[in-house]
Every structure is written in structure tokens, then in C-alpha cells.
Amino acid sequence: MSDLEIVKARTGLWAVVASDLAIIIAIVVAITLGPTGGELTPLLTSAFTAITAITTAYFGIKAVTNTAATALKGKDPNAKKRPASSVDPPEPGDSEDR
């Protein structure tokens, strides 16, 4: 990884962590200031949905970006080296019709 890629990855991760923390702080303040019972459930549901969406989007985009970069470089460490055709050609005179 180049230095630029490392900086981009760290910056993106910090942005996700900061936004998740901001949502958590907003929820704690909102709970402290007053909603009770039925008002609290939609508030918590929305907060957890936002945190999940932000975090999942970051890691999803990061995974796709890494996969695309690896594919473009042609250096997939998980790819097995194999011949272009994994099926042996038939021998002359071999026939399954016999």
C-alpha cells in the first residue's frame, strides 16, 4: 500500500468513528433530556440504523475498492495459478459413442 492509500483508509475510518460517536452523543443527550417509553423506541431505532448504515457503507466501499485495485494490478494473492483451460483436450481416436 502506498502512503496515500494508508492516509485515505485512516481518514475514512476516523470519519466513520467520528460520525458514530456524534450519533451516540446525540442519543445520550436526547435520552437525558426526556423522552420516555414509546418516544424512546423510535429514537434508539433510528440511531442504531444510522450507525449501522454508515459503518456498513464504509466497509463495503472499502472492500470493493480493495478488490478492484487488486484485480487491476493482477496481483490477487488468493488466485491459484492454473492453465487457461483446465479441461484436457480429447485424445485422437477417443470417442464416447462406442
Rank of each mutant, 00 (worst) to 15 (best):
L44R: 11
A30M: 01
V7N: 11
T45Y: 01
V7W: 07
A79F: 05
V7K: 15
T49V: 13
K73R: 12
K81C: 02
I23N: 09
S86A: 12
S19T: 13
T36S: 14
E39C: 04
P89C: 00
T52K: 10
S46D: 05
G93P: 13
A18P: 02
S19Q: 12
P35F: 10
A79E: 13
K8N: 14
V87G: 00
P89I: 02
D3L: 13
T67A: 14
T45V: 09
A68L: 09
S46R: 08
P77N: 01
A15S: 14
I24V: 15
T56L: 14
T11Y: 09
A53W: 05
A63E: 00
D76E: 07
S2P: 15
L13A: 14
T52P: 03
I27W: 02
A63M: 08
T65R: 01
L4E: 15
A63N: 04
I61V: 12
D94A: 07
V64K: 07
I27F: 03
G12A: 10
G37E: 10
A63I: 06
I61K: 04
D97T: 04
A22N: 08
P92K: 03
G93I: 05
G34P: 04
P92M: 00
V87K: 11
G74M: 02
L44E: 03
A9G: 00
T11C: 07
G60V: 10
A71N: 00
R10V: 15
P89W: 02
A71Y: 03
P92V: 00
V7R: 14
I31G: 02
S19M: 13
K81L: 09
I25E: 05
A63D: 02
R82S: 08
A79N: 03
R98Y: 06
R10W: 08
A53P: 00
M1W: 07
E5N: 15
D3C: 09
L72K: 05
K62L: 09
P35N: 02
G93E: 08
S85D: 14
S46F: 06
I31V: 12
K81I: 07
A9K: 12
D94C: 02
T41D: 04
T65V: 07
G74C: 03
T45N: 11
L4D: 15
D76A: 09
K62Y: 07
V87W: 09
T11E: 15
P90E: 06
K73G: 05
L72F: 09
T55H: 14
L21A: 15
P90V: 13
T55Y: 03
L44A: 08
T45E: 08
S19Y: 11
I23M: 02
S86N: 05
A57H: 01
P90D: 12
V7L: 15
A63W: 03
T65L: 01
V17N: 05
A9Q: 13
I25S: 11
D76R: 04
I51P: 07
K73A: 10
V28S: 04
L4R: 14
P92A: 00
S2H: 05
A30I: 01
A50T: 13
I27S: 05
V29Y: 04
T32D: 11
R10F: 12
I23P: 02
I31A: 10
K62A: 14
L43A: 07
K75T: 13
N78K: 03
V7M: 12
M1D: 13
I27P: 00
I27V: 15
S46Q: 04
L33K: 04
